[in-house]
């Protein structure tokens, strides 16, 4: 097994872990964290799959197209996280709770 495959399996496990946390965690902040884990696992998988082609052809580097897309994705994920956190803080301001249960 190569290192690249190893990191690919790691990415797959991260996606599963993030998905589980997103469903099961009651607190919104924990859901945001889990969503970030999930996204980071997806990007890792993408990078691993792109690494196989780019690394072989373009000398030492990874595939530049995939790298550029991952950088774009990281910036968008940050913007989405900030917006989610701002919504959470407003939710706490309005209701005093940090979970989404309508009856709790």
């Amino acid at each position: 097994m190569s290192s690249v495959t190893l990191f690919g399996l790691c990415g797959a496990a991260l996606v599963g872990l993030g998905l589980f946390g997103l469903i099961v965690q009651p607190g919104v902040l924990r859901k945001i964290l889990a969503f970030n884990l999930l996204g980071s696992g997806v990007l890792l998988l993408f990078g691993v799959i792109a690494r196989r082609g780019g690394g072989v052809v373009a000398g030492n580097g990874s595939d530049p197209v995939a790298q550029a897309l991952i950088i774009t994705a990281l910036v968008v994920a940050f913007a989405a996280t900030v917006l989610a956190v701002a919504l959470l803080r407003r939710l706490v301001q309005e209701t005093g709770r940090d979970s989404l249960d309508s009856d709790g």
Binding site: G55, S62, A66, Q67
Partner: peptide, 11 residues
């Protein structure tokens, strides 16, 4: 390790 240093800086 995946030779994606640009991504590493951003991450």
């Amino acid at each position: 390790r995946l030779a994606a240093v640009d991504v590493a800086l951003t991450e």
